[in-house]
Amino acid sequence: MISSFERHGAMEKKKPVVLVNERYCKGCHICVEFCPTSVFEMRGFTAVVKNPEACIACMQCELRCPDFAVTVSQ
């Protein structure tokens, strides 16, 4: 059995995967603005993932994107 501490440690090793669905993104800037670690930037009219390593899996982007365009998975 692994301890909760170990499990936490194991989880931390799994990197969150942030994806922007370009077909859905309307370029509102919301994810760019509200990501606490500046993972996104705008490229033309769509958001793109610029710093995937910085993601702390806070889920703000997924929660706030009005267009179902951002997903964060592990």
């Binding site: 859905y24 309307k26 509102c28 800037h29 919301i30 997924e62 009005p66 267009d67 179902f68």
Partner: peptide, 26 residues
């Protein structure tokens, strides 16, 4: 870990008609 909205969204209906940044999507 995120929420699977796909369970409730009708297939093929996105993107929705709302403007960029419209709160209705949220």
């Amino acid at each position: 870990m995120g929420f699977d909205y796909g369970k409730y969204i009708r297939p093929g209906k996105l993107p929705h008609i709302w403007c960029p940044g419209c709160g209705h999507g949220i």
